[in-house]
Each structure stands twice: as structure tokens, then as C-alpha cells.
Design a protein around this nucleic acid. Structure first.
Lengths: 248, 248
DNA sequence: CTGTCGCATTGACGCAGATCAACTGGATTG
DNA sequence: CAATCCAGTTGATCTGCGTCAATGCGACAG
């Protein structure tokens, strides 16, 4: 997962704007041409597991539309989400044989895949792709470390508020600027998936959602549609430093 | 943090073997020559904070000897360790202006630093360095995700056992092979640092250490010296899949 | 309209780990 | 050889979240 401005997504440079931004924002025409030749699209249904941990991987890919999750499972069934992939995010690891995590479609999903072997060859010939990938991986590492703070030290309420603000930010960042802190969005995750993200049980997630609603921090219409009347108020509940420079 | 075989450390290729492995295991003579010109060493005392979150960073670096930690702190003082840097690990992020975390010396520490500007130039000219860095960053991301499972889903006892096995692996992996599962090592962290690593309090760490000792899983001589008579037994306590292919 | 299926909510209760506090033991200092 | 300090240990108590179980509610089928 990366903290990148969604506005960039509108920068269309071909039939698959997202893919280009993801792997070769700085690529020249020749490099784009080569990528064009090794790509193909795949689509999946919500709930489907595309890749099992340990699977041999012969491609890398980038999310075009929809949301996917990375999860790890212990022998006794305890599960922890370790990645949330939104459009433009990258999946797969050049130089690795097999997948390290289960990848599951949380919503209907379209991926743009690249055959791994030629992709790796392209990478070793041009510094652009490797550099872009490094940048994206560093973004993911930052997100993972923020996530570790959440898992290790935040209360259930703070965890929920943090997750809501993360989703609001990525899902509705444009709207957010335009509306001075009023945002509405649909949760792309079930309560159970939220629990796996946050290291909680689904019951605790449900209770804290109700509590935030009761306290007027969020509004709920149906189970999934969330309305945040005052985004700053939500941020106060996350336990993070005030607004982290997002709105300023 | 990376899961790399410590044996490689003994591969000496110059005055600073670790540095070479860290950033340019595949570099040619010319590239090495350039690295040589932009490097300098710095040493720090145990307990010293080398870098504060938000500091402007004009170098990247690699740990030569000693141990450093990356930590995040919330306004009210809650702290979470998000990185543990052992010899050969890399610090700093090409392309970023400022540090995202506090970096603190857990033991006396020697770092090999590279001035950032010329390092970035070298990176953009040669694919080797960027690729090597990508590989290391992917290793760190894997470690971070393993760590997330630990923080989100493991019990206190499993957390302690996991940390001990991680340290034993990196600190004593050579000995481990030679001695069929019997290892002794010194903890490089205080109980409080262990707690910050594991998302626990120092009291809980202490209690669980005592419990593992009482149950014969580990032996303790003094506060810091740990003896593991049966490494497989320790691994069973971690909650992970049996041995994760380490000894096989 | 009624049954049922999958998510979500809510309540009652228990426990792992946090909190608060007293104590130990080794190292350092005057 | 006290006096102090600091890391660690251990005990008593509290509490936030997990566990187990019942109930609600919209969607969809017959």
C-alpha cells in the first residue's frame, strides 16, 4: 500500500493508465513498448483467492480496479492481514520464486499482469523500472511500519478510527479537499476483514463502530456506508499526531 | 531487517566487507571505486539517538558493527519499535528528504555512511545498486509483515519465543548448524526494548521470560545470557509453522 | 409471504495482559 | 562498606478485549 496522490491516476498514458504509473512513471517510449508486449489482464470475483502462500509465481502485476488483500494465516487459523492493495498498487516480487502471502479479492478485481521473466530482464536493463519499484516498495514499508504501531500500541477505538481515516484518505481524497472535511464513502471490507486488518475480533470491531456512531464521530447508513461530518474529529480519535500534514 | 545468511558476512571484499555486501554485492570495480569516494565512518555509544524522526537526512548508511533500532512514538509516549538493524542492514531512503523514525544505538555502533546526493546519482546510473537495494527493501518488507502477524495475533509467550528465535537465528546461525539445536547468545536488548519490539509491557516480558525458564524451554544465566538447549522446542512455542524451512 | 443464508449487532462473562507497587541483586560511587 | 542507582523480578489488582451465545436484518429463493 502506498500513500500516493490519487490525482495522478487521471494521468492517462495509454490503454491502461494505472499500470503505467505503477511501474514506469518515468519510462521512455521504448520501455513502454516492451511492457506492452508482456502484459495481459485478468479479472477475479469478490472473495476469490488469486494466489496461495507458497504458490510458484510466474508474473508480477498491478491492481487496475478493485481491492485485494494480503493475509497470513497461522496453523490454528488465526489470521492477520498484512497488505491492502488498492488501484495502482503492485503485487509480486521480482527475484522471488514463490508467493509469501495469500492474495484475495476483497471486491471484484481487475489486474494487469506482466510475465515475470521478461519483466525481470527489462528491470536489469533499465534503471527506471527498478528505481520506480524501489520507491513503491519503500512506500509500502512505511505503511507497514505505521501499521505496526497501530497493531502494537493502539486501543481498539484508535485502530478503528485509523482504518476509517486511511480508507477515507485513499478512497475520497479529492472529495475531502473540496468539502472541508465532510466525506462519505463505502467500506470495501466486511467486519471480519476489518478485524483481520486491525488485529481484533469482528465483535470488537462492531462494538467500536457502534460506539463511534453513538459519540457522533461517524454516521452509518446501512452496514457499509460511512459518513464523516468532521474529518479532524476523526483524526483526533486515531491517536496520531494532529493531521500528519495531510490537509495542510 | 533481512533474512540473509550470515555466512556471506565472511566474504571479505575490501576494507569494509559488510558495506560491500549491503549495497553492491554485484558491483563491478568501477562502481566500487565510486562508492569508496563517498563513504565515511561514524561511531556511536549505546543509548545514543543518531537520528530523530523528521530530521533532514543527507546520507544513507549501513551498519558495520553493533545494533540499532527504529522506533515510532505517539504523543502520549507509547512507543513501538518498527525496525531492528543488525550488521549489514541498511538505513536511509534514497529519494526521501527526511527521516521517518527515530534511530537509536542499542549497543555501541559503527556505521558506514554514504553521502546521499552522489549515492543517488550512482543509483540512477547503474542498475546494480538500485536492484540490490530493492532486494534488501523487499527483505525488510517481508520481515515487517511477519512482525505484523506477531503484533496482531500472537500471545505474549509466542511473542517472546519468536523474538528469541529471531535473535538466535541472526546472532548464532552458524553455531546453530554446528551444534544441532543447542545455542547460547546474549540478548542485545533490555526488557523494555524487547517490550517495545513486541507490543507488550516490560513486566509481561519479564514474567514470560521467567515462565519459559521455569518450563525448561530456555536457560538464563544472569539477565542477558540465554541458553537454548533444544531450538526446535523453542520454535514450537513461536506458533509459526514448524521450522519454516530454516534447519532443513 | 415465509424460510434461510450471510453479515452484523448486542449481551454476559472470563481472562490475558496492563497497571501500580514493592522488592532484589549486581555495579558504581564516595 | 554503606549509599545510590538501574535493570530486572514478582505480587496484587484492574480492565479492555476475547469468547460464547442469542438476536436482528436485508437479500434472495421457492
Amino acid at each position: 500500500m502506498s500513500h500516493q496522490d490519487l490525482q495522478l491516476l487521471s494521468h492517462d498514458c495509454g490503454s491502461c493508465p494505472i499500470r503505467h504509473r505503477a511501474v514506469c512513471a518515468r519510462c521512455d517510449a521504448d520501455e513502454l513498448q516492451q511492457l506492452e508486449q508482456i502484459k495481459y489482464y485478468r479479472s477475479y470475483q469478490a472473495g476469490q483467492t488469486l494466489i496461495w502462500s507458497g504458490d510458484r509465481m510466474d508474473f508480477v502485476a498491478s491492481v487496475v480496479t478493485g481491492i485485494a488483500t494480503l493475509t497470513q494465516t497461522m496453523e490454528d487459523g488465526r489470521r492477520q492481514m498484512v497488505g491492502l492493495l488498492l488501484p495502482s498498487d503492485f503485487v509480486g516480487r521480482p527475484g522471488r520464486q514463490s508467493a509469501a502471502y495469500d492474495v484475495t479479492a476483497a471486491t471484484d478485481l481487475v489486474m494487469c499482469c506482466f510475465r515475470k521473466k521478461p519483466f525481470e530482464e527489462l528491470m536489469s536493463k533499465t534503471p527506471h523500472v527498478a528505481q520506480r519499484l524501489l520507491e513503491m516498495t519503500l512506500d509500502e514499508l512505511d505503511a507497514a511500519r505505521e501499521w505496526m504501531l497501530l497493531l502494537g500500541r493502539k486501543t481498539a477505538r484508535e485502530k478503528i478510527a485509523s482504518l476509517l481515516s486511511i480508507i477515507a484518505r485513499r478512497d475520497a481524497s479529492l472529495k475531502l479537499r473540496a468539502t472541508k472535511g465532510v466525506v462519505t464513502f463505502d467500506l470495501p471490507l466486511t467486519r471480519e476483514e476489518m478485524a483481520d486488518y486491525l488485529g481484533l475480533t469482528l465483535e470488537t470491531v462492531s462494538r467500536q463502530m457502534s460506539a463511534l456512531k453513538r459519540d457522533g464521530v461517524i454516521g452509518l447508513e446501512g452496514k457499509r456506508h460511512v459518513k464523516v461530518a468532521d474529518f479532524d474529529r476523526l483524526l483526533e480519535e486515531t491517536g496520531d499526531d494532529s493531521d500528519g500534514g495531510f490537509l495542510n
